[in-house]
């Protein structure tokens, strides 16, 4: 049985999920663009390609993980969306 309150609650949950869907690519973009702030190659403390690789692949994997979670939390509400049909 649905309580009168749960409707509000559901739409609130839904908005939070949608917010997560928007935030994830933004956070990903910030992390991917971090190398722009790294010192240049001719500076005193250049960044090694090996560490750079590890950093970028970790960020990448984290984004994929985030997308898996996103797919999980968005799945039910996507199918229940009234505008679907």
């Amino acid at each position: 049985m649905t309580q009168p309150k749960s409707n509000n609650r559901r739409s609130h949950d839904r908005r939070r999920r949608v917010d997560a869907a928007i935030v994830l690519p933004l956070v990903g973009a910030v992390l991917v663009f971090v190398p722009v702030l790294w010192p240049s190659a001719d500076s005193a403390t250049p960044v090694n390609t090996s560490s750079a690789s590890i950093y970028l692949f970790l960020v990448w994997a984290a984004m994929i993980f985030g997308a898996v979670i996103l797919a999980y939390i968005l799945r039910p509400s996507t199918s229940a969306e009234p505008s679907d049909d």
């Binding site: 928007i22 973009a29 985030g66 996103l70």
Partner: peptide, 21 residues
């Protein structure tokens, strides 16, 4: 050019991860 080639894959990754948008 070293790790620069990753840009070609990070762009689409961003698009796919932000599929909702």
């Amino acid at each position: 050019s070293g790790l620069e080639f990753l840009t070609i894959y990070l762009g689409p990754t961003g698009v796919m991860i932000g599929w909702w948008l």
